[in-house]
Every structure is written in C-alpha cells, then in structure tokens.
Design a binder for these strands. Structure first.
Lengths: 227, 227
DNA sequence: GTCTATACTAAGATAGAC
DNA sequence: GTCTATCTTAGTATAGAC
C-alpha cells in the first residue's frame, strides 16, 4: 500500500491495486483449499489453478509455501481479532465454537475462524508431517494461539461472578482450557463425518450447561466457608 | 542382524517365526514413528531404517504404505479391545482419556491407544492430505471408530442410574460424544506443546465433575415430574 | 508484475540377485 | 524371505521471456 493515487480506473485500478488484488485472490484460494485439504494437501499448483494466476505469480507474491501460509494465518488472526472484540459469554462462546465451526450454524461460521481451528490440528507437534518442528507456519500459529488464549481468558473472566473469581483466581483459565478442548474435540468430530450426524446446537447447549454447572459449584464453595 | 547360522533354535525359531518377528518389528517401528510424525510424516524409508530391515522386506510384508497402516490400526484396535473389556465408569474413562493420553499418567498410557487417538485426527476428512477420501487407512479407521463408539456407549450406560437411562434413553450416547470430544480436545492440547504445561489430572477431574453434574441434572428431572 | 518451461528433490514403489 | 539398486511421480521452487 505505498502509492494510492487512484485515478479514474473503474475496475482495474493502478498497477499496485491490481497486484494487491492478485495477492488477495491467492490468499482466498489458499484459504478454501487449506480448509478442504489441509496444509500438506494444499499444493502450490492447486493454489495457482484455483486463484487463476500462474504459479510464477504465486511465488512472486509469496516466496515459499510456508510464507504463504504464514500470511494466511495472519489474515485469519486479524479477522478473528475483529470478530472477538465485543463481549461474549461462556454459553455463546461454546455455541460459536461447536455449532459455528461445525457449520451447523452458518450464522456463526467464518472460514477464517475455521482455518485457525484447523491450524490447531496441523500444529500437533511432530504430528502429521504437516507442520514440523522448525516450520515457520507452526511458529506463527503458536504465537497467535497464545495471544488468542489470553483474549479468551479475559472475556471468560467477565462472565464469571466477581466474587467467585476472587476466591478462585485461576478458574477462568481452567474454564477457557475446557471450552477450548470441547471446541477442538467437536471440530474433530464435525470434520470426520463419522457415524450419525450430530446435532451440534444441542451439544453446544449441553456443554454450556456442564460448564455452567461447574461454575455454580465453585460459586457455592465461594459462598460457603470455602473448601 | 545377519542371518548367519541356525544353531540353537532357542531364540531364532523356524523360518516362519523369523518372518513373524520381522513383521512385528516393522509394525512396532511404524507405531513409534507414526506417534511421532503422523501418517504423512512417516516415510517407508524411516520405517525400514527404524525396524532394522531393508525397504524391500518392508514391502514384502506389506504391499503398500496404506496396507502397513491398516495393519497397524488393526493391531492397535485389538489392543484397545482387550484393554476395554472390563467395566469403566465415566470418571475413569475421562481420566484415562485425558491424563492417560497426554502421558501425564503413564500408568494409563499405551502407545496403541494413543495411536488410535492420533488416527482420529488424521481422519479429519479431506484434511491434512493425510488420509484422503478414498484412502483405505481412513476407511479402516472409521469402521473401528464406529465399533469403539458402540463399546463406549454400552460401558457408559452402565455408569448411569437405570431410571435415568429409562427416562432419557439417548443420554449415554450424548455423554459418550461429550467425553470423546473432551478427550480428543485434550489430545490436541497435549500434543501441541503450547503455553504452560497443563495439569491434565486436574482437568480430567474437572471434566468428570462437569459431566457428572450433567447426569445429576437429568437425574433430578427424572425424579421430578419430568421436563 | 505476469507467465511458461523446467530443474530439483523427496518419497512410494518395484526388479531381480541372493 | 531378505536385501540393493533403481524407476516413477508429485510437488516445491527457479529462470528468464514478455
């Protein structure tokens, strides 16, 4: 985004604008392909074909496959951050995580968020051949994950009564871990098209009830003389 | 490891026995490698090197990489079935699933069970390039998963009061799905070596309490006039 | 900046001697 | 049944014309 002299040019724009558009096309093509085929499964040739740009152009914009995916993760992380700026209770979080990611609630579904969840699986250390130890994509993802985890904890803290938090300071962290585990777990299920199709909305509700019950337990303990 | 002489049959055994031993060596090497590197990440060359047998022998015993992994899954499924023959309550199941798989409780940890959990992730449909649609490994895994799911449901049914089951017949299934999601989710965490190391035993306990709370809810509803 | 043609490499698989 | 040498393919990446 250096020169912005947007003279006339309806559809085409400046050379810079055209380049930017190409870059975005590549990124969006990679997003779709990555959701469908994963990291290893997404070939640069496929990105080229799907974006409509020749492979040379892809390598002009991104110097390697790793760099392309780092850029893709950054794109998704940015989208995630914007999406998660308002308040969000435990129940809504689980609903978005379980029913949204599974695609059961299209309202809550964004490809960017789904890709971040997919990346969690790619990043399984040493696993999958996908993202090996010294892979920049993995490193970038782990950085973002720490960041997103912090945001999650803060937002979950808001939805736990203040006195309970005071009595059990690490409860929000634990709830965050549990809800993350649940969403990750359902993500695995949702994308495994195993047996009967599940009613994810109902499971989101059950999961929320289960965690809320846990909070109630701690609240009771906080109200009593404490354990 | 040359063949040399067939002196005392004690350790060496017949030619058949030697062949069987080779086959097992290959499977065990593949098990370790697969846990470490996943499906894509495990190369036939590595299996050959790690097992001590040349690649030609590996292909003599298993006609393809896919067949090798199908055999490996069968080996693990057999181990799983033996392991899960006795009774096992919800709490113990979650402990095994969360603390065991993470390695936090070595007592509960078996490589075979861990591999099956890893395979759940590999099987993410269309994902990872690992196990594509028409992959025999994936098909074999999905068959086993259905089987194991049934066993899980039956065993969880036993740990829910009979009257509650009668009132809410699909509750055991739902609990099974939730506990599967939790264990899958924690498996992802445990193998992502992200931020702070978690106390999986404690999380196993929290998860158990959360689900037990859910059961209590249904029990109360069953006791009352019902929802 | 865009594109075609091609070099390089890793990995699955096979042939055939022993 | 075991092993070495080799074939084949697919996928990342680059060179260089336009």
């Amino acid at each position: 985004m250096t020169r912005s002299t947007r003279q006339g040019e309806g559809t085409k724009g400046t050379r810079q604008a055209r380049s930017d558009r190409s870059r975005e096309q590549i990124l969006l093509a990679a997003l779709d392909l990555a959701l469908e085929h994963g990291y290893q499964g997404t070939t640069m040739a496929a990105v080229s074909a799907s974006s409509g740009l020749p492979i040379g152009s892809v390598y002009w914009h991104f110097k390697s496959k790793e760099q392309l995916f780092v850029a893709l993760l950054e794109h998704c992380h940015k989208a995630w951050t914007e999406l998660h700026s308002g308040p969000e209770g435990l129940r809504r979080k689980l609903h978005r995580g379980i029913a949204g990611l599974s695609g059961a609630d299209p309202e809550q579904y964004t490809k960017e968020e789904a890709l971040l969840k997919a990346a969690a699986v790619w990043a399984l250390s040493r696993q999958l051949g996908g993202l090996g130890e010294d892979n920049e994509v993995r490193a970038a993802y782990l950085r973002m994950r720490v960041e997103m985890f912090k945001v999650d904890v803060e937002r979950i803290t808001e939805s736990v009564p203040a006195d309970v938090v005071e009595r059990f300071p690490d409860l929000p962290t634990k709830l965050t871990v549990l809800s993350l585990a649940l969403t990750d777990g359902f993500y695995v299920h949702a994308n495994s098209d195993v047996h009967l199709e599940l009613d994810f909305a109902e499971y989101a509700d059950m999961a929320a009830r289960a965690l809320e019950g846990l909070v109630d337990d701690y609240a009771r303990r906080a109200a009593g003389k404490g354990q």
